[in-house]
Write a protein that binds this DNA or RNA. Sequence first.
DNA 1: ACCTGCATCCCCCGATTGTGGTATTTTCCA
DNA 2: TGGAAAATACCACAATCGGGGGATGCAGGT
Lengths: 217, 217
Amino acid sequence: MNDIKVAIFEDNKHLRESLYYLVNGTPGFICTGVYPDCNDAVFQITKDTPDVILMDIEMPGTNGIQAVKLIKAKFPNIQVLMQTVFHDEENIFNAICAGASGYILKSTTPAEFIEAIRNVYNGGSPMTGSIARKVLELFSKNIQPAAPSDYQLTAKEKEMLGFMVTGKSFKMIAEVAGISYETVRTHMKNIYAKLHVNSNTEAVSKVLKEKLLSFLF
Amino acid sequence: MNDIKVAIFEDNKHLRESLYYLVNGTPGFICTGVYPDCNDAVFQITKDTPDVILMDIEMPGTNGIQAVKLIKAKFPNIQVLMQTVFHDEENIFNAICAGASGYILKSTTPAEFIEAIRNVYNGGSPMTGSIARKVLELFSKNIQPAAPSDYQLTAKEKEMLGFMVTGKSFKMIAEVAGISYETVRTHMKNIYAKLHVNSNTEAVSKVLKEKLLSFLF
DNA sequence: ACCTGCATCCCCCGATTGTGGTATTTTCCA
DNA sequence: TGGAAAATACCACAATCGGGGGATGCAGGT
């Protein structure tokens, strides 16, 4: 079996060199190149012909995500492992769309790091549980767009929610609905129980994501 | 911090007992119940009130996937970790659609096992790289062009909004984002100004209606 | 007549949010 | 290298929300 060839794109000098020594110091792996930016990524990859690319998501010049797009367009068989900081959801999403295969945190231990490279080389998509959760949530929404979920909301409760998603406070709802503030609160309490939520934002979010109020669309 | 309460559904007697002793023998974990089938799962869960459920996918009687559907419908906050012997794609996808949060193999080591329970309890979705890859592939097929309108929100502000639409309080956001409560409040103030809103529900509503956060869709 | 679900209203109290400030450090770009 | 933008953090005070009660009236069905 040949060594797994790895190219590294990472702007932080210290981390870049650490990774270089880690990869080259591990039997079965060889680092074909380390680069502080990906302005010439395609050229360098043509030269290096790596199997796996380690790509920092945030870099000066061409950013990691743009680079992944270019790379995957030209070398669809190269596996790209993104390195990211915690909870950068938007970037993770964009990286997925760009064609990256794995996502690891910069805080990953050396052993896990090597294992992630091996995993992505073998066709897996290593990622942390927290990132996987985000992906699953997106996934299940796209798969079942029209959830037949019904929460047994009464007409009045739906009316309350309708006002809620316009950003009205309980007090404002009471005025426009012509009922007392306390009644609005009672309705909201019942709604929260039925929707299994415990805040106004969560309720609004659920209503919009699951399209619980047909009249809103 | 309280112990993580775990319920186990597993038809294999030997494995079931091994898991029981593993969970109960680990500090910070307590097994509230072990069951050889899930014919009365909802009743048992009502009684046990576990935080995490370990569910074998293949079982006599009600199978694991049907059980997950019932459980998640009634207890959406309980995290379900599926177990199986094989990388059975079909079952994995069905389980995910049913609402399971993580997916592990029975060949998992005890240490990884405990770690997976902890991970799923903390809101992650532990899974192997190969499973993650399948999910990503399906996901990348359903991508849509991102929305154009933008309010000059910074990355951090988008991150805050992302947490906001999940219903998190400022305090919770501060924890998961690793910044102080007051900083979260400062970000929110800036967000409100940029979006021209003046409440959390209005902000969430605007984000969802105008699809301001691409990673949410 | 009784029960159940729904809508209505009220109280209390602690937690959270909205709004107005100020201020330091980090990052990035001209 | 200086300045702008962003991220960080804190204070104070009023307003609102969340969760826990309890209570009344009204309609519909048994």
